[in-house]
């Protein structure tokens, strides 16, 4: 299936939540910030995605990706039809070639969780997620792409990269590698930031994420808080990005998740991230502008 303008490396874009006041995505569209695409987050609700799509089209036809955190693809009970339908409508509205879904859930049974429970690190969990990803892809107008979730408390014997590899293989889907989420896992296990990357099928990676974060000390235990635009990007994440990005032969997009950031922080994080992948940006075909 063609990914349209994402058939090749597009560049560095911003993940924006249309429900957040910050950053003002309309102001970004009207600015001279070097943004190559938007990844639109909607939390499963309708209408807002249409608004972004219309504004993006009016602002020079900016390419859009879609990110849905309401699909809960790791639930062994299966998917929720209403959420799937919302994702279908939103994704169609933004004409995204793929929809990003983290391997995590906000529900246990019918109960809402106050935290995003990441996939358990077992083969059974990987199988259940793979089955759900197949069903999601069948229902969407484009591809589904699995993202590694953030961790505070890993449960299960496997490494998250082993689980992500199993899900993508069994579902036949590609993935997003979120450097901050990966780093959060490595902190939990006391591993190096890039542990497990060498053995991971990097040809599955179509998108990389970076975002602001803070590491809190709770009684001597380091807890990684994925703060997105509410914090600066830790230097280690930019180092991970610079190391991993050139090794992903099918990389199409690098997304900075900037919800809650002001324009000044967006500009700073764009500069830092573009510097980390400067080689890839420079290698883009000449019809693309930086």
């Amino acid at each position: 299936m063609s990914d349209g303008r994402f058939d090749r490396f597009v560049g560095v874009g911003l993940g924006i939540d249309v429900h957040n006041e910050q950053p003002d995505w309309r102001a970004i569209l009207g600015s001279d910030l070097p943004v190559d695409f938007f990844e639109v987050y909607t939390r499963g609700t309708l209408a807002a995605a249409h608004e972004v799509a219309a504004a993006a089209a009016a602002a020079g036809d900016l390419p859009l990706l879609y990110h849905d955190d309401a699909l809960d693809p790791i639930r062994p009970e299966g998917l929720i039809a209403a959420d799937l339908e919302a994702a279908r409508v939103n994704m169609a509205a933004v004409a995204a070639p793929w929809c990003v879904s983290e391997l995590a859930t906000r529900r246990i049974g019918d109960r809402y969780l106050d935290f995003f429970m990441p996939i358990l690190l077992t083969e059974e969990a990987a199988d259940a997620a793979a089955e759900n990803m197949r069903l999601i892809e069948a229902a969407l107008p484009g591809r589904i792409v699995a993202e590694n979730p953030p961790y505070l408390l890993p449960v299960g014997p496997l490494h998250i990269l082993e689980v992500l590899a199993r899900v993508t293989e069994r579902a036949g889907c590609d993935c997003v590698l979120d450097t901050g989420h990966l780093y959060s896992f490595q902190i939990c296990r006391g591993l190096d930031p890039l542990a497990g990357v060498d053995a991971f099928p990097l040809e599955r990676v179509v998108e990389l994420h970076v975002a602001g974060a803070e590491v809190e000390d709770e009684g001597g235990v380091a807890l990684y808080h994925d703060s997105h635009g509410a914090a600066e990007i830790p230097p280690v994440l930019l180092e991970m990005l610079a190391e991993i990005a050139p090794r992903c032969p099918n990389l199409r997009a690098v997304t900075i998740e900037v919800e809650d950031a002001n324009l000044e922080r967006c500009a700073r994080q764009l500069e830092q991230t573009r510097e980390a992948v400067a080689g890839l940006l420079a290698a883009r075909p000449s019809d693309r502008s930086d």
């Binding site: 246990i108 049974g109 109960r111 429970m117 358990l120 059974e124 259940a128 408390l153 449960v155």
Partner: peptide, 10 residues
Amino acid sequence: GLADQMRHTE
């Protein structure tokens, strides 16, 4: 199985 493990984790 998985559902119970997730419930216990929560």
